[in-house]
């Protein structure tokens, strides 16, 4: 066996399809040739036979089992795609089928007896999409995810929890810009997760508290007049909403909050003094055993 020994006798896509149609009849639903890839659509009932033919038919001779994976086909359920390659003719063939059972119980026959390599590929597809492969020796335990993982990660209705809980902080992603670079407001759909912005609110509240502390420190340093003259603008309760980032320059100056903050600053200073004292005591304690020794 040598590489590309029969390249001159390689079948064209049309001939391949004609040959498969001749051997399998109605099992072949159709074919597409797009983006330099020839795809044959196969009925699930003829799925295993097609691969056996592709492997054993001397004219086809697809000996390298390249890959097998699932694709989410929206409302119609799931597709299973497998790619074969022939090392003697240099042809590549993509076979595609629509799983039976819709989105709830997708089922596809197993290729494990035709190509050894299908074993793990089908386990992975089951792990990622929940597609059952009758005839497979053991789909469980889950091959990639944790054994007690719940859900089928690559289905489009599986949302990434991190994206729901925490939208991208700061700058918007390029994926959310239109051609002119403007931010697009999107309605959440399948696969999108703008989320409740809990974190943003928390961060805004934190920023306000910080600003109050610094204002209070200023006040303690002798700028009391400046703080007192400023008018109370927004109450704490409404802060975390949209107004929070906008109020960047006008330091929040609710009198109660300012008093609070001043107290905090005082406490901080007292804590620092205490820490210094403690350190001095420690130093003294360190030295005593030394002298004894």
């Amino acid at each position: 066996m040598s590489v590309l020994a029969r390249r001159d006798r390689a079948l064209t896509p049309e001939e391949t399809e004609a040959l498969l149609r001749d051997r399998l009849g109605d099992g072949i639903i159709g074919s597409t040739l797009a983006h330099r890839m020839f795809t044959v659509h196969v009925a699930p009932s003829a799925w295993v036979d097609t691969f056996t033919r592709c492997r054993d038919e001397p004219l086809l001779d697809f000996d390298l089992f390249d890959t097998l994976h699932g694709v989410d086909a929206r409302e119609d359920g799931f597709d299973v795609v497998a790619i074969l390659y022939s090392t003697s003719t240099g042809n590549r063939l993509c076979l595609r089928t629509r799983c039976e059972g819709g989105r709830d119980t997708p089922v596809c026959p197993s290729l494990n007896d035709v190509y050894r390599g299908a074993n793990w590929m089908e386990r992975e597809t089951w792990d990622m999409f929940g597609i059952e492969f009758p005839g497979h020796p053991a789909l469980e335990p889950r091959i990639l995810t944790v054994e007690n993982f719940e859900g089928w990660p690559l289905r489009k209705d599986f949302h990434l929890a991190s994206r729901v809980a925490k939208p991208w902080p700061g700058v918007k992603e390029p994926a959310e810009l239109d051609e002119d670079g403007n931010v697009i407001e999107r309605v959440p759909g399948i696969g999108d997760a703008p989320g409740p912005y809990v974190l943003d609110e928390a961060m805004a509240a934190q920023a306000i508290a910080l600003r109050q502390v610094s204002a209070a420190i200023d006040a303690a340093a002798g700028n009391e007049a400046a703080v007192a003259s400023a008018e109370p603008t927004v109450s704490d309760a409404t802060m975390p909403e949209a107004s929070a980032p906008a109020s960047g320059t006008a330091a929040s100056t609710d009198p109660a909050a300012a008093a609070d903050a001043a107290r905090t600053a005082d406490e901080q200073r007292r804590a620092q003094a205490e820490a210094r004292a403690r350190k001095a005591a420690e130093r003294a304690a360190d030295e005593t055993p030394e002298e004894q020794a």
Binding site: L144, V146, P153, F158, L160, A161, S162, R163
Partner: peptide
């Protein structure tokens, strides 16, 4: 992988 479903953050 901050948003991955299988990575410990």
């Amino acid at each position: 992988y901050w948003d991955s479903y299988s990575v410990t953050k």
